[in-house]
Design a protein around this nucleic acid. Structure first.
Length: 471
RNA sequence: GGCGAGGUAGCCAAGCGGUUAGGCAGAGGUCUGCAAAACCUUUCAGGUCGGUUCGACUCCGAUCCUCGCCUCCA
C-alpha cells in the first residue's frame, strides 16, 4: 500500500501514516455547532476531509468516518431564545440546512453523524469516570475538569499552564477551584434545556460530547481527528485531556487541522460579520467551482476568498472541462483500454501528491497535465485512455463529475445577471448563423455572433459545426 | 506579551540543495471568411541581511512584514 504522510498537529511534523489496524482508518471530524447556517469555512473543512476520505478509500483503506453535530451549548441556547424557538427546533432546522449544503458540495455523508443530545448517557458516564479518577469535581451543580491533574495539558496547542495563567484569563466561574479548569457539566439555568444527572439537572459542557461520541463509535484510541485550526485550543486540547484521563491510553494518533478562509486577509467568522453562507454562495457559484477553489490550496494554508479568486478558479476548471468536451465531441467512440506507462506514471504522481500531506494543488497539476495530453492526443485510443484516467483521478477530488457539454451550457457564475437565452433559443440562432455562413453572408453571421456575445454566449466554429458556451 | 503558521514571478499556488510544477493574465504561433473561442509554444520568481556549501528559492541565524490561536469559532 502507498506510503502516506500527514502533518500531525501534535508533533508539528510530517509523519508516516500507519493506522492502528492494518487496512482500516478511523476518522473523527469535528462537526459544527448547529446554531446558524454554515459558511465557506465549514465547507472548506468538509471538502478537505472529504478528499482525505476519498483518497484513503481509493488507495484501498476501509474508512470509518464520523462527523458530529453539536446541538446543545451556550450559543444554541442563546440563539434559540433570541428566535423564540426551542433548542431542538433550532438544531433540527440547521442540521437540515447543513446536510443540504454538504450534499450540494458533493461531500459524501459520514458513516455516522452523531448528535450530542442523543448521547447524554455516554457523556454522563464519561464525566463520572473522570470524577472517580480524580480528574474532575462537582461544584454547585457544575462539574469541572481539573486541568492540573493532567500533566500533558497544552501539548497539542503548545501552551504551557504558565502561559495560560499569564494570559490573564481570569475565569468568572466562582465555583472553579482553578481558573484553568473547564466545565464538563453545567447546572441548569431557568428556561434552559436540561437532563438528569448525578449532579442534578443540567447539560453537558462544550468539549465532552466529542470525547464521548468518538469513544462510542471509534474506540478509546483511533487514527485521525480532523478539524479547523481554530479548534486546537481550547476544544481539542480539552478533548485530549478528557479522553486520556478517562481511558488512560493514547487518544488520537494523527491530528489534522485545516487552515482558515479569509476575506481581505482576515479570518472569515461570524463575529466579524464577514462570512459567506454556503447557501448564498451556491446561488451564485457552481458547487464544483467552490470545490475546485478550495482544493487549489493545500488544506493547511489559509485561503483568501474573493469574487475575483472564484473567477480565476473558473478559468482553470473550465480548461479541464474544455479538454473533456473536445475529446467527447470529436471522438464519440473513445475506446477504453489499459493505460500505457506514461499514464501509469501520471496516476502514480497524482496519488503521490495526495499521499504527501494531501497536496491537492500538486494533484490538480497532474490533472492539467492530463488535459494537455488529451488535447494533443493524435489517436483515439490514447485519447480514450487519457479521458478515462482524467475522470477517474478527478473523482478522488470530487471534480469533473458533470457532463462536459452541459457544464458549459449552464452559467457557472451567476452574479445577479439575467438568466440569458435558453439553450433552444441559442441553438436556433446558431442554426440561422450556419445558414448565413453557408450563403457567405458574413455580415449576418457576424451580427448573430455579436448578438449572442452580448448575451454572454460565446460560440466556437469547429470543422463542420458550431458549439457554444456561457461565459 | 506568549504560542504557532507563512512570506515564491502581474495574480493564485506547489515541489525541490544543482535538472519544466500547475492555473490565470501577457507574448508568439496554429486554426478561421474575418474574428472569437480553442489549441500549441513561451517570457517573467523566491521579503531583507548574513552564514553553511563547489552550488540555496530550498539548510542555519538575524531582521522586517502578514495571518491565526491565547474568549465562541471550521
Amino acid at each position: 500500500m502507498i506510503e502516506i504522510y500527514f502533518t500531525n498537529s501534535l508533533s508539528k511534523k510530517k509523519e508516516r501514516f500507519v493506522p492502528l489496524e492494518p487496512g482500516r482508518v478511523k476518522i473523527y471530524n469535528c462537526g459544527v455547532t448547529v446554531y446558524d447556517r454554515c459558511h465557506l469555512g465549514h465547507a472548506r473543512g468538509a471538502i478537505n476531509f472529504d478528499v482525505l476520505r476519498r483518497f484513503l478509500e481509493a488507495v484501498g483503506y476501509q474508512v470509518t468516518y464520523v462527523k458530529n453535530y453539536t446541538d446543545i451549548d451556550d450559543k444554541m441556547i442563546a440563539r434559540a431564545a433570541e428566535r423564540k424557538i426551542t433548542v431542538a427546533e433550532l438544531a433540527k432546522e440547521n442540521i437540515a440546512l447543513h446536510d443540504r449544503d454538504m450534499a450540494s458540495l458533493g461531500i459524501q455523508p459520514p458513516h455516522i453523524a452523531p448528535k450530542a443530545t442523543e448521547h447524554l448517557p455516554e457523556i454522563i458516564q464519561m464525566i463520572e469516570r473522570l470524577v472517580q479518577g480524580g480528574h474532575a469535581y462537582a461544584a454547585g451543580g457544575d462539574v469541572y475538569f481539573k486541568v492540573r491533574s493532567f500533566a500533558a495539558y497544552g501539548e497539542l496547542s503548545g501552551k504551557s499552564i504558565e502561559d495560560l495563567i499569564s494570559g490573564h484569563r481570569v475565569a468568572l466561574g466562582t465555583e472553579k477551584q482553578d481558573p484553568l479548569d473547564f466545565a464538563l457539566w453545567k447546572a441548569k439555568k431557568p428556561g434552559e434545556p436540561f437532563w438528569q444527572s448525578p449532579w442534578g439537572e443540567g447539560r453537558p459542557g462544550w468539549h465532552i460530547e466529542c470525547s464521548a461520541m468518538s469513544e462510542k463509535y471509534l474506540g478509546e484510541s483511533f487514527d485521525i481527528h480532523a478539524g479547523g485550526s481554530d479548534l486546537i485550543f481550547p476544544h481539542h486540547e480539552n478533548e485530549i485531556a478528557q479522553s486520556v484521563c478517562a481511558h488512560h491510553q493514547p487518544f488520537v494518533r494523527y491530528w489534522l487541522h485545516n487552515g482558515m478562509i479569509q476575506i481581505q486577509s482576515q479570518k472569515m467568522s461570524k463575529s466579524l460579520g464577514n462570512f459567506a453562507a454556503i447557501e448564498d454562495l451556491l446561488l451564485v457559484y457552481e458547487p464544483e467551482l467552490i470545490r475546485f477553489f478550495i482544493l487549489s490550496s493545500q488544506y493547511r494554508a489559509s485561503i483568501d476568498f474573493s469574487k475575483e479568486a472564484l473567477h480565476k478558479a473558473l478559468e482553470g476548471l473550465d480548461r479541464l472541462y474544455t479538454a473533456l468536451r473536445s475529446a467527447q465531441e470529436n471522438r464519440p467512440q473513445l475506446p477504453p483500454g489499459p493505460a500505457p506507462n506514461e499514464l501509469k506514471q501520471k496516476k502514480k504522481q497524482f496519488f503521490a501528491a495526495l499521499a504527501d500531506d494531501l497536496n491537492t494543488p500538486a494533484a490538480l497539476a497532474v490533472l492539467f497535465d492530463l488535459a494537455r495530453g488529451l488535447n494533443i492526443a493524435s489517436d483515439p485510443a490514447t485519447a480514450g485512455r487519457i479521458f478515462g484516467l482524467l475522470q477517474e483521478l478527478a473523482q478522488v477530488l470530487g471534480l469533473l463529475e458533470q457532463d462536459p457539454s452541459l457544464w458549459f451550457q449552464r452559467p457557472r457564475i451567476r452574479e445577479g445577471k439575467e438568466q440569458g437565452p435558453s439553450a433552444a433559443e441559442i441553438e436556433s440562432l446558431i442554426q440561422q448563423r450556419i445558414q448565413a455562413r453557408a450563403e457567405k453572408n458574413w455580415a449576418e453571421a457576424d451580427r448573430i455572433r455579436d448578438l449572442l456575445r452580448a448575451q454572454g454566449i460565446v460560440i466556437e466554429d469547429q470543422a463542420g459545426k458550431t458549439i457554444w458556451k456561457r461565459k
